[in-house]
């Protein structure tokens, strides 16, 4: 049930985190200026350095590595899902004489890292039918509002959908160890709904 204690970050990991942050900030800076010149890059580096000193970022460690093929698969599926989601909500909106029903479900993620929690929650809010309501960092549980479900079977199917989304994200940016945890989930913890109190009525 408890999360493994997180080891303090080593110097090397901390520098890597900073390098990732600087790269991101410089990219945004160059995009803001719109042209790629050395003056832009150098001024961006200066701004990023000042930002990181003045507003230190919380340590979100990017432990994995980027795998291009799963990443492309995730992005393609994500764009498709976004289109489907928009069509679905638009259809629900213009349909007469129908009140959409919803459900709030708890989904326990198998990889409980801040980055995975954040990415899954963000992607989840943009794919069909779901909206993130609450995230429990301690257990890595996301509480999701689902719209447009009619039966409990559909709710369960949706729960599986969330876990598949998590799989796609971990496959795209997760570390090897996280991938392993996906394949054979932790036998000690209950794999399925942590929360049975609010059980189906």
């Amino acid at each position: 049930m408890t999360t493994p204690p997180r080891a303090p970050l080593t110097r090397r990991v901390r520098w890597r985190n900073r390098a990732v942050a600087v790269t991101g900030l410089v990219t945004v800076w160059v995009l803001l200026w719109g042209t790629f010149t050395w003056a832009n890059v150098i001024s961006g580096l200066a701004v990023a350095a000042v930002l990181l000193v003045v507003f230190p970022l919380p340590p979100v460690t990017f432990a994995g590595r980027i795998r291009p093929v799963p990443l492309a698969r995730f992005l393609a599926r994500f764009l498709w899902d976004l289109v489907v989601a928009s069509a679905q909500v638009a259809w629900l909106a213009v349909r007469f004489g129908h009140t959409p029903r919803g459900a709030i479900i708890a989904v326990r993620l198998r990889v409980n890292t801040d980055l995975n929690l954040t990415l899954t929650a963000e992607a989840l809010s943009l794919v069909p039918g779901s909206l993130i309501l609450e995230a429990d960092r301690g257990t890595g549980t996301l509480y999701v509002h689902v719209i447009g479900v009619r039966t409990l079977d559909e709710v369960e199917r949706f729960r599986r959908g969330v876990r598949e989304l998590e799989e796609r994200i971990v496959a795209a940016v997760g570390s090897g160890e996280e991938l392993r945890r996906l394949r054979d989930p932790d036998p000690t913890g209950p794999p399925e709904p942590v929360d049975l109190e609010g059980a189906p009525t």
Partner: peptide, 12 residues
Amino acid sequence: LLLTDELAGRLD
């Protein structure tokens, strides 16, 4: 309108 509410238990 909610079929199930699994957040209520946590809040309690």
